[in-house]
């Protein structure tokens, strides 16, 4: 079976990595391996405890950007499929934020495709995080230059 298009979802609800793995591999026997990345809400920012994090996004452009990154990864690493789920809304420390799941005939493509996807997602998908600290103050998270450098190591999309 050939590669299928990337599965992209933006949702407030939590996700189940086991269910998503089963869905990605359903009804096929050609997949040799899957790789996954799950991003979580850290309980502190700059050493200060946070009480929650709010994820805002640009409906429409988000799905387009994630679809483009998914297609680029699928083509470049010859993935057999990939799933990207990103949550939005109010999340608590320990909550899952993002899932990247890749399937390929061999491990290296699955692992590389997964790393490529999360690196590009962090610099190209229109999401913004706002942290609410335990003392009630709020602050938008600054973009990290290091993330741009990490994404650039893959070359252009």
């Amino acid at each position: 079976m050939d590669a299928v298009g990337a599965t992209i979802r933006v949702q407030t609800a939590d996700f189940d990595i086991a269910a998503e793995s089963r869905a990605l591999g359903a009804d096929r026997t050609d997949i040799g391996g899957m790789a996954s990345f799950v991003g979580l809400v850290r309980g502190t920012a700059s050493g200060r405890p946070i009480s929650s994090m709010t994820l805002e996004h640009y409906p429409g452009m988000t799905e387009r950007a994630l679809g483009a990154i998914g297609d680029a990864a699928t083509q470049r690493f010859e993935l057999q499929g990939c799933t990207v789920i990103h949550r939005v809304g109010i999340l608590l420390p320990g909550d899952q934020i993002v899932l990247v799941l890749t399937a390929a005939p061999h491990r290296q493509a699955a692992l590389d495709g997964c790393a490529f996807l999360i690196d590009w997602l962090k610099t190209r998908a229109p999401f913004w995080k706002k942290e609410r600290f335990a003392d009630g103050t709020e602050s938008w998270v600054d973009a990290r230059e290091a993330d741009d450098v990490t994404a650039e190591r893959w070359g252009r999309l």
Partner: peptide, 8 residues
């Protein structure tokens, strides 16, 4: 218009 993105 928006700030640099911070998802993931």
């Amino acid at each position: 218009f928006f700030p640099p993105v911070t998802g993931g």
